[in-house]
Design a protein around this nucleic acid. Sequence first.
DNA 1: ATTACATTTGACAAATTATGTCAAGTAAAA
DNA 2: TTTTACTTGACATAATTTGTCAAATGTAAT
Lengths: 109, 109
Amino acid sequence: MSSKIIHMETVGQIIRAKRESLGLLLRQVASYLDIDQAILSKIERNERTPTRNNIIKLAEILKLDKEDLLVQFMSEKIAYEIANEDCASKVLKVAEQKIKYLKSNLTKN
Amino acid sequence: MSSKIIHMETVGQIIRAKRESLGLLLRQVASYLDIDQAILSKIERNERTPTRNNIIKLAEILKLDKEDLLVQFMSEKIAYEIANEDCASKVLKVAEQKIKYLKSNLTKN
DNA sequence: ATTACATTTGACAAATTATGTCAAGTAAAA
DNA sequence: TTTTACTTGACATAATTTGTCAAATGTAAT
């Protein structure tokens, strides 16, 4: 029964909501990330993609689960990359096979 | 029963095998792709990643299924991107959800 | 309405990565 | 030993990413 998809927030929406709920200003968070607040503003509105390091620092200062946020971040990047392909789901399936194959071969080295 | 994974060739291996079976030279194929044969040599040995356009031209000249080769190409890129993450399979699952969500919202515009 | 403050915007700069050329090197066959 | 195919690595150029800055906008309090 029914969808597993409860919400589908972007990373930007997640961090903006959390930042505001903590009462932090753009410039405060941006300074912690060591970037200009203009970039953070754009990240929150999906005009710029954060770097991996941005994500890690954001999780820290916003008290979000780092692993979760990274998963959101990476999956968002991948989704954006292939969403317009009609073979998108096939690509993901094959990617999964390839990863399994790669990991199974790690044991052999 | 057992593994669905029969072979797990890279794009490089696929095109090298096919090129050789057709008796084509690096320089012939490279010229068709409008690149230096050094690049093609590297692509075949996984030292360089092909461009999307390279893949399309390769499918043409090597009489490979374009869609299949593109799927291999894109999934390889994704696999390479996240293979070293321990949350790799979660990333793929979430990516799939996001893509479904994006596509369901296309109808609403 | 003026001031003060947070955010947004766009032009631009710097750094990084992707893509390519070239020429010399290796290897094997003729 | 000359020719042929391929490989290698140093380097060049182009494209993309990532960032800065200052001006513009929005918003709330004085």
